[in-house]
Design a binder for these strands. Structure first.
Lengths: 292, 292
DNA sequence: TCTTTTCCATACAAAAATGTATAGCAGATG
DNA sequence: CATCTGCTATACATTTTTGTATGGAAAAGA
């Protein structure tokens, strides 16, 4: 079975119609249709139900989605590697970080990197969804949990501390809470959605229940903006808060979290100059961030 | 860049010549040659040095090998899944186990499975090299270490005990050692090559040094055969030794290892009838083995 | 209700990929 | 030393794949 068909299959799966898939791939709609038909013939099953508004995947097609996605990300990584194999540090590197790190910390490192290596390109995926390095969704990742996968180059850069912070203006108006229980009367900023991490955190600090929060956002960055704007009290990396002298630590003794921080990279990229350069720069950047 | 070229590229890489690759893929040598040339043109670099005896990969080509291998195993897994999506338990499942488990334990489970599901095919990879489930090198794996990868269905089936064993005939001739130190005068069976596991084991039982071993083999199965043949004293799973009443435990109190045993499967296969059936059968098989 | 837009499917022409045949070369073999 | 066998590279014919053009059908908008 030719691999080329799988590309069309994935495009139809993600685009939802033969025409859209064809546009995206730079080929024509009949061709995509033929590819899908060829797959259906080979697998002896219907992969899409045809409708006038597009193709709707069957269960069988959805069961195959993960495989072709994996192939696609691997192929993309292959091309990044192949197109960067000339002398010097050049080519494209995909970096995956959490939202806050990607917005607040990494950019300064990238600026310096780009000055040193003008032909280096970096794709920054600032998302809290954990990317899979083994599936080549990214080349390098900065994560707050130790790597569970083998075959990775991993460097522990220390602990990021989380604390409660608020803007000085807010505290001047509402007063500085003296104990955890006083938080109930304050404007608390936190997450909207439940995640395993949040449940674990809540077990340690019951005050931080979803109902107690008056300002909710699923975006760390938005939460940080709210803290900076003096909306209330929220959780923030101490190292980030230190940058803004008007942000004041709240209840430093009662509330503190330490997150192990790792920079990880696929083992195969050990010999890749461009990835090694970005990896080293990110390690240094994170260490500077933590030590700041 | 068309994925189809990558297939040819990998075939040349593994076969060593355009002609051999073409034979393997069922196409002709000029076609494979054109594919390779197309890749070289696209990547603007030489991937192989042509010789009269074949194509020798350059460093650049070797750097890309891992990617295409990953794509290939994923494509193979996709086809296994696609060709097994009809009703009932059928299709192909790839199972990866250690050598001993694959040879001594699993086959009986497979026999029963095949009786219950005649149209089920199983590929058994009995190798001590750890297969990567995320890369789809196998669908299901039985491993002696807890899974370090997320997105896996994992079932702990208990502990396999390792002990020292010897054949009754050997012990009758050479005597039963009464203490660990007496092992030095015996014929010891063990591994030839150093592995991280062995280094860890040695730290606990210094007697088992490489020099002390008189019969060395890197194959667990061969070691087991030597023990059964009365060659000497070796390490063996207690559950396996129990099957042969003429195998006698040596120094049961001084030497005992417990290995956590896990059956693991890629999370995407949770809904796959054939994989679920094999998974359940293997879990039961391993539990029976351990409890025996 | 009619028009417009989007979609898929099909027939036919054009383009691209593949296969065939062959030449040339190096090493193994008698 | 000649022969044989493996390999790659190239020219040419063929097949396959792709693109173009068009028809029909369903949904969105006037």
């Amino acid at each position: 079975m030719g691999w080329e068909y799988y590309r069309s299959f994935l495009a139809v799966l993600t685009e939802g119609s033969l025409s859209a898939a064809a546009r995206k791939m730079g080929i024509t709609q009949p061709t995509v249709g033929r590819h899908v038909s060829a797959l259906e013939a080979a697998f002896k099953q219907v992969l899409f139900t045809r409708t006038p508004s597009g193709l709707v995947p069957t269960d069988a097609a959805n069961a195959l989605k993960g495989y072709v996605e994996s192939m696609q990300s691997t192929a993309a990584a292959l091309e990044r590697e192949a197109l960067s194999q000339e002398q010097g540090v050049q080519g494209t590197v995909r970096v995956s970080t959490s939202e806050v790190i990607g917005v607040e910390v990494v950019p300064r490192a990238l600026a310096r990197l780009r000055r040193e290596h003008p032909s280096l390109k970096v794709e920054l995926m600032a998302t809290n969804r954990v990317q899979d390095l083994l599936r080549r969704e990214a080349d390098i990742a900065i994560r707050m949990s130790p790597p569970r996968q083998e075959a990775l180059v991993a460097r522990k850069v220390g602990h990021v501390e989380l604390g409660l912070f608020a803007h000085a203006d807010y505290l001047a108006e509402r007063g500085m809470p003296a104990a955890i229980t006083e938080l109930e009367t304050h404007a608390l900023i936190g997450f909207d959605e439940e995640t395993p991490f949040l449940r674990a955190a809540r077990a340690k600090f019951p005050v931080w229940s979803r109902d107690a929060l008056t300002l909710r956002s699923d975006s760390d960055v938005a939460q940080l903006a709210m803290i900076r704007a003096g909306c209330g009290i929220g959780i923030c990396q101490s190292a980030l808060a230190r940058r803004d002298e008007r942000l004041v630590r709240v209840l430093p003794d009662a509330f503190s979290f330490l997150l192990e921080t790792w920079v990880t990279m696929h083992g195969d990229l050990r010999g890749s100059r461009r990835c090694r350069a970005v990896f080293d720069a990110l390690v240094k950047c994170m260490q500077d961030h933590i030590d700041a």
